[in-house]
Design a binder for these strands. Structure first.
Lengths: 350, 350
DNA sequence: TTTAGCACTCGATTGTTTGGAGTGCTAATT
DNA sequence: AATTAGCACTCCAAACAATCGAGTGCTAAA
């Protein structure tokens, strides 16, 4: 544990650097932090902090800049999350589209709200639920031999796909479809649907297998599509404004367009803590070595979880951002739970 | 009309500048273009072309760069569209996801194919059809007082939204819903649904108006949402690589994120020509003054049209890009027509 | 009408100088 | 022993100067 004065100095350096973006020197620190010592003393302490790896110098005759380790120590031990200001609370609330109830739209607008609020890029992940089940499957004919198949899951995800059948869609086929869906899909977990299951099912249909087969395949595709929860990104272009990305902005943006790593980013991490801060190389991706993420998990009921957060340069105002993201995450939890959770005994309000 | 030699020189300047990105001087031109005159003659011609406004000099002692007007003349009179190479044709075909049949996915993959092929940003607009009508509306209960309402249009667009009802959803309400939908919505053009129509309809329902009202409002919302056809953008980050955007990349990307102008970009323009090239300020947006667009319209059947194309720096290889985009547009037309058009007498193939 | 020749222009590149912020060390002070 | 004033030193950034060369327009000859 660092001695109190050193802690105070480290915190002051981090905060001042976050604010100004310039390496902070001993004198500037003296003016700013409420310390009753001379600049020489501060210099001595700074030399110590440098030796310990908390701060570093861009070059010999420059001020100090926090290292990743320094940020980490600050975030873990020194930072005091700021109270969320009333007008920011309102900005968040105003930005989120409660009304539609569509989780996609909710997350999209929530992401945009974060973007506007923070001037960073926002990342969000739609709710994924291991226990999600099939709420409904419909077949809507659009021509004699084509139909749109629509899947709705318990988490509110809706997927659809056109399907071309080998035979004409008549009352008979529709009846069969409804029966098959009723008995084999409704209420079943998404994870139970797969190639094997479809084949077994087709085999058991006997004479009707031929006509049903394309429809079954389409259902399987839809379930597959509904199982991978999408990651959304917004405000990437904000990042261009920060000088830490001047060189390799393209590289970063390209990285953020790729699906898999994004998914990893919002999926991994502690399951117990509701907010997670990852600084620089803690993100495990070379492209993010100068970036930090603040990610908060949200819950819908017991099983479904998603995440929302921001990506920006390591030099971000952690103490201010954390409460904002926490609050937004709570809102999402609440709104989505309200719409999609099985209703319990508790009454409902307007 | 420009004298032939001057045309030849202008074309050579444009093409060389497109290739190298450097202002082209009289000597460089001599080496490259197959002209049998001295550099001094070329200089004289270049002076003329400058006076006429086709080319310009960045500064006194630099080579020449095409003006917008120069590009325009080149595109209209001098350019010879290159034959589409076999491997590029294959790249386009390989990039597009035919199979899903979902217009959204098709356009998304088509956009990505364009991005990969051209290294510019791709823009696309989903089919919009003034005569589009409502194919189907379903209500899927998800709890006693909540239901998911799903709308499917004749152009294959699917929208859904949860709806909270004031009374419990019972067989009675479902029956009413089906009847109301059957009689008032199915087969009706999207444009016929609006606030007034909904209110009139509600009034005519008498005692059932109360229970149906939230559902009707939801339907109206869905029709509204299905009416605006979405514009898709891909590969924005590619643009960062071009030095013409070095200063204001952020501004451009921000612009491209906004919905309305994008919509304008792909909507406006000649209705008769199938491909449209807009150079620099012809785009009418200040943010695009250094950008060009090549947009091709595609058709589904008689009424529905959409568009796909690219956005990039004015200095782009028009003669090579035009055929690629044309071809991609044809593919989209064909695939979407195949899936969504009302089947006519012509038979269908696998 | 074309071309060789030439003086001129001006951005890009490279080198030089200077100023100042910040440092670490030493010696004096508390 | 801890703190501080003082000072020599380092090194970046900004300003300034010098040079280079591609490209031009013009003139006069072919």
């Amino acid at each position: 544990m660092l001695p109190p004065r050193r802690q105070k100095i480290l915190a002051a350096i981090v905060e001042q650097y976050i604010e100004t973006g310039e390496p902070v020197g001993s004198k500037a620190l003296l003016a700013n932090a409420g310390l009753d010592v001379s600049s020489a003393t501060i210099r001595n302490e700074m030399a110590e902090l440098t030796a310990l790896g908390f701060i570093t110098q861009p070059h010999t005759s420059a001020g100090r800049v926090p290292t990743e380790y320094g940020y980490r120590y600050y975030v873990d031990n020194l930072m005091q999350p700021k109270e969320l200001e009333e007008n920011e609370r309102r900005r968040i609330e105003a930005g989120v589209d409660y009304r539609s109830g569509d989780p996609e739209i909710l997350l999209e607008t929530a992401g945009e709200a974060l973007v506007n609020l923070t001037n960073f890029a926002a990342i969000s992940k739609a709710p994924s639920d291991e226990n999600a089940f099939i709420r409904n499957i419909e077949m809507v004919p659009i021509s004699p031999k084509k139909a749109m198949v629509v899947l709705l899951t318990s988490t509110g995800i809706l997927k659809s796909k056109p399907c071309r059948t080998d035979v004409e869609i008549d009352a008979d086929l529709r009846k069969t479809f409804i029966d098959v869906v009723d008995q084999n899909f409704l209420g079943k977990p998404l994870s139970s649907v797969g190639t094997v299951m479809i084949q077994t099912l087709a085999a058991s249909l006997g004479a009707k297998a031929l006509s049903m087969s394309p429809l079954l395949v389409t259902i399987a595709d839809l379930v597959e599509a509904a199982s991978v929860s999408e990651v959304n990104l917004a405000g990437q272009s904000n990042l261009l404004g920060y000088k830490e990305y001047d060189d390799n902005a393209g590289q970063l943006l390209d990285f953020l367009h790729r699906e898999e790593p994004l998914n990893m980013l919002v999926s991994s991490g502690d399951t117990d803590s509701d907010i997670e801060i990852r600084i620089g190389s803690e993100n495990r991706y070379k492209e993010l070595e100068n970036s930090s993420m603040i990610i908060s998990k949200y819950k819908i009921g017991e099983n479904a979880t998603g995440a929302i957060g921001i990506i920006g340069p390591t030099r971000m105002n952690y103490s201010k951002l954390v409460p904002s993201i926490k609050y937004l995450s709570e809102i999402i939890s609440k709104v989505l739970s309200d719409v999609y959770e099985e209703e319990t005994s508790s009454g409902e309000e307007g």
